[in-house]
Amino acid sequence: MQDFYRQQASPIHKLDARVKLILALAFIFFLNLTPDGAWPALIIFLTVSFSIAIISHLGIIFVLKRSLIALPFFLAAFPLIFSGKSPHLPLQILPNLTIFYSPAGLQRFITIALKAWISVQAAILLTATTRFTDILTALQQMKLPRLWVTVIGLMWRYLFVISDEVTRMLHARSSRSAAAPGKAKGAGTLFWRARVTGNMAGSLFVRSIERSERVYTAMLARGYDGQLPASSTVPLTNRARLVIATGLLGLLLLWLFSLLSTS
């Protein structure tokens, strides 16, 4: 397992994590408030996202590749093309096959797809330019519940250890269940396969619970008293405040522009 942080010396990487978190959230918020069919505004949102990809030295290709993850979900909005508001126009596909589609629905589908695509880019840019520990510190500094941030922090710390454990278990399973060439892999009944996987999950949980007991002992030995040491709250610098204010103002203006630019 690998997290998606990419070390680069860029101005975006150097920004305070709180600034990036707030601006990424605001970006996605205003993007999603943009009405259907506000193409000029959506193009500007996309341009902003691409610009940040370039400034942060990540490159557009990296962001494009990772942003494919939201693709399968587009299926959910696909029926809109046919079920959207009337009027429904005929569209001839084959000489004797005509389907009816709704232009309003098509416009909504494209808008949704664009919004989903640009939003996921913003999230990718946030995680690729910010270490997860910095995001955690930012969440703590923004006064989110201490216990929750602690649980997420511990989870992140052990995620990589445990995913290695899972990988080893999967290796062990596939090396024990070799199949003759030409025979379908994963022999045995479906029920049997599910039970084996279930047993693996059970053993993973037992190992994790036992690991957490060792972790707890180690924490006690280092003076754990029920609270993880809090990172000091450094107030935002004036420059960071200025970046937040400018960014929010820009996004607000962009949204107002999107309201004007719908046809």
């Binding site: 216990l147 511990l154 989870m155 052990y158 995620l159 993973l204 994790s208 957490s212």
Partner: peptide, 13 residues
């Protein structure tokens, strides 16, 4: 607290 953190990691992984 560590139990919840490690179990969350186990559920994810």
């Amino acid at each position: 607290v560590p139990l919840m953190g490690v179990l969350a990691a186990a559920i994810f992984a």
